[in-house]
């Protein structure tokens, strides 16, 4: 008897589908991007200049690189708050390696390796130490940045080998920056990994039901560990780009980035409880956030107001899907 009513309900779900596709999260993000693009273009005559648009991509690409990895971690039901601290620590290690006079490849490698090791620490705390990821990475967030402060104090490291600046400032062709090319390439890899491989399926399954995933033969701990390492490595890479662009290292570098990166992931439609999310959504969210912050900058809006806007965006993003679910579907 209950079968009858259930199949009736599932039929209703099927017929609702065209409408559902219309309010797909990615569709809404594209609309928001178009609206913001129009506002920016209207607000400033310089906005449509290719070199201005190139500037939009620069700072956002660094965060978006981390957001791509973070999206996988959140989809698997975990989170890493320590990415800002990892970027600072990686920047310090690059600064020290550069000051010692070592060549460019070693400087870059030390930044990425520091991120990787920091990711291993987070992964070990969560999968071996069984510390909830939010607690573990709040701890390492302070720890990593604390080490950066302990090493540098009030100091600055700014002797970098020649050629280092190109990574964060150089362009591949005309207004197309290296950072943009790197981000596009990594986004393509992430899309394939998430949507076309067994790995992506296992990530989503683990976030959706970790216990059933383990019982289905997924090595959930190994998977989570790998994802923490990936996020750490991505943070190391972001540190290379950021340090190169700024040309100097201070322990306060990338302060507060973790929140902007996590905002990108959530804005991209990844469910904070895990199990749901797409990479195109995260890419669109990164573009939208870049446009909004850059547009506010064009309008000379001060930084404090920008954080108000970012915060409001995040709340709206969490509230809107909840409202859509309540009014749009029968399922709670």
């Amino acid at each position: 008897m209950s079968d009858v009513s259930l199949s009736a309900r599932s039929k209703a779900r099927v017929t609702r589908r065209p409408w559902h596709a219309l309010v797909r999260w990615e569709t809404l993000l594209v609309l928001a991007i178009l609206v913001d693009f129009a506002i920016n273009a209207h607000a400033s005559p310089y906005f449509l200049d290719p070199w201005t648009l190139s500037d939009v991509t620069v700072s956002v690409a660094e965060k978006a690189v981390v957001a791509l990895a973070m999206a996988f971690l959140v989809m698997a039901g975990e989170i890493d708050i320590s990415v800002g601290g990892i970027i600072a620590l990686a920047s310090v290690s690059m600064g020290l390696v550069a000051r010692a006079g070592l060549p460019l490849p070693l400087v870059v490698a030390s930044g990425i390796a520091t991120g990787l090791l920091a990711g291993c620490v987070n992964g070990a705390l969560v999968t071996i130490g069984r510390v909830p990821s939010i607690v573990a990475t709040i701890g390492t967030m302070t720890l990593f940045r604390g080490i950066a402060y302990a090493v540098l104090g009030d100091g600055v490291l700014k002797t970098y080998p020649p050629g280092f600046a190109w990574l964060g400032q150089g362009s591949v062709a005309g207004p197309v920056s290296f950072e943009l090319v790197l981000f596009v390439a990594l986004a393509a890899v992430a899309i394939v990994l998430r949507h076309a491989t067994a790995f992506g399926r296992r990530v989503v399954a683990t976030g959706s039901n970790p216990e059933a995933s383990r019982m289905s033969g997924i090595a959930t701990d190994r998977l989570r560990f790998a994802l923490f390492v990936a996020v750490g490595t991505a943070a190391g890479l972001a540190s290379v780009l950021l340090t190169s662009r700024l040309g100097s290292t201070r322990p306060s570098i990338a302060q507060g980035w973790e929140l902007e990166i996590i905002t990108m992931v959530i804005l991209g439609g990844v469910a904070i409880e895990g199990g749901i999310g797409t990479i195109p959504g995260v890419v669109l969210a990164a573009i939208l956030m870049g446009l909004v912050t850059f547009g506010l900058g064009l309008l000379n809006v001060p930084g404090i107001v920008m954080s108000v806007v970012t915060g409001t965006m995040l709340i709206v993003v969490v509230a809107v899907p909840a409202a859509l679910r309540r009014y749009g579907g029968g399922r709670q």
Partner: peptide
């Protein structure tokens, strides 16, 4: 509900999960 099925995943994805290889 806790150990057997992935309730929020599709039926097809559930069936192929242990044998994805």
């Amino acid at each position: 509900q806790r150990q057997g099925a992935h309730l929020r995943l599709a039926i097809g994805d559930n069936i192929t999960l242990p044998s994805l290889g």
